[in-house]
């Protein structure tokens, strides 16, 4: 990934208002770098699928522009769409189609000549090698999802959209799915996935964007996002239990455990001064003896819940 290169997808001022008056996207700006894995995180109805669908040409935006690989999705829709593979959220399949045929159809739709060697290799990679001649409706849910991935990859796209790839998928398949994603990343495919499983985003993505009410309220490298928005907790274990928090320590709003052996200090990693040094001095002055110190950082889930909640007061950025 080259951070100075042009983004492979550039979204500017994108807005979508449906005919029923519902605003699904408002003024979304987004740059997606080539080769990265971007996770779009948000609750149901946040606008994740609308954003993806708009970039893929399934939803007509009300305002704004999108370029894919430098091609405008309207003026140069052929060039733009040729770069994209889409795995939809719903298991949309033609029940009577044979697996190999439906994947061949996908390749043809994207303007590429038939290539059975590639299709066979692709299906093999997705553990579908022995299912090529099966009819879609004979496959399990997990297998159907793999076929949808194969269909999306049939035209060798540079960008893959995975809309809620692990919704309703068992643990085993979810692990397989991430193995597939890792492999695609190694091949240089840019991957955009939506999810509301935070651990997924945390585990696999390079960057995380948080969407709520049709707006991207935060987007950053996963690590930065966590340190930017993360709250840390410093747990102080005391040699001797204390009955109450000494008055001199009141400014630090410490929480005392019921047995009086632990004090917990919450601080914001974004703040210039975390207050740890002064806390330690104050503990010393209060005559409390420390046994141990440990810190824990809030997970992406905590961050996410915080952000969506505080979004009522405006953007977090």
């Amino acid at each position: 990934m080259n951070p100075t290169s042009e983004p492979i997808i550039r979204v500017r001022g994108l807005g979508k208002r449906y005919a029923n008056g519902f605003t699904a996207l408002s003024n979304v700006d987004l740059d997606i770098k080539e080769g990265e894995i971007l996770a779009l995180l948000g609750p149901n109805g946040a606008g994740k699928t609308t954003l993806i669908s708009t970039i893929c040409g399934l939803v007509e935006p009300t305002s704004g522009s999108v370029t894919v690989g430098g091609h405008d999705i309207h003026k140069n829709f052929r060039e733009a769409r040729s770069l994209i593979g889409l795995v939809p959220q719903e298991l949309a399949i033609a029940p009577f189609d044979v697996v190999a045929n439906t994947v061949r159809l996908s390749r043809g739709l994207f303007g590429l000549a038939r290539n059975d060697v590639y299709i066979e290799e692709l299906l093999g990679r997705l553990s579908l090698g022995d299912k090529m001649g099966n009819i879609m409706q004979q496959l399990s849910g997990g297998m159907k999802r793999r076929v949808l991935i194969a269909k999306a990859l049939a035209h060798e796209p540079r960008i893959l959209f995975l809309d809620e790839p692990t919704a309703g998928v068992d643990v085993e398949l979810r692990k397989d799915m991430w193995a597939i994603v890792e492999q695609l990343r190694a091949d240089g495919v840019t991957i955009i996935l939506t999810t509301h499983y935070i651990e997924e985003a945390e585990e696999i993505a390079d960057r995380v964007g948080v969407i709520a009410k049709g707006r991207i309220i935060a987007i950053d490298d996963k690590v930065n996002l966590m340190s930017r928005f993360g709250r840390k907790q410093l747990t102080i274990e005391l040699r001797d239990p204390c009955d109450s928090v000494p008055a001199t320590l009141e400014p630090f709003s410490l929480e005392r455990s019921s047995d009086g052996r632990r004090l917990v200090y919450s601080y914001d990693t974004r703040a210039d001064r975390t207050g740890i040094t002064s806390l330690l001095q104050a503990l010393n002055s209060a005559g409390l003896q420390l046994k141990d110190l440990s810190t824990t950082q809030s997970s992406l889930e905590d961050i996410f819940v915080d952000m969506v909640a505080s979004d009522n007061d405006g953007a977090v950025e």
């Binding site: 733009a80 040729s82 949309a92 033609a94 739709l109």
Partner: peptide, 10 residues
Amino acid sequence: GTIYEVMSAP
């Protein structure tokens, strides 16, 4: 629902 593919094809 498979129409998505035709609609997102070039």
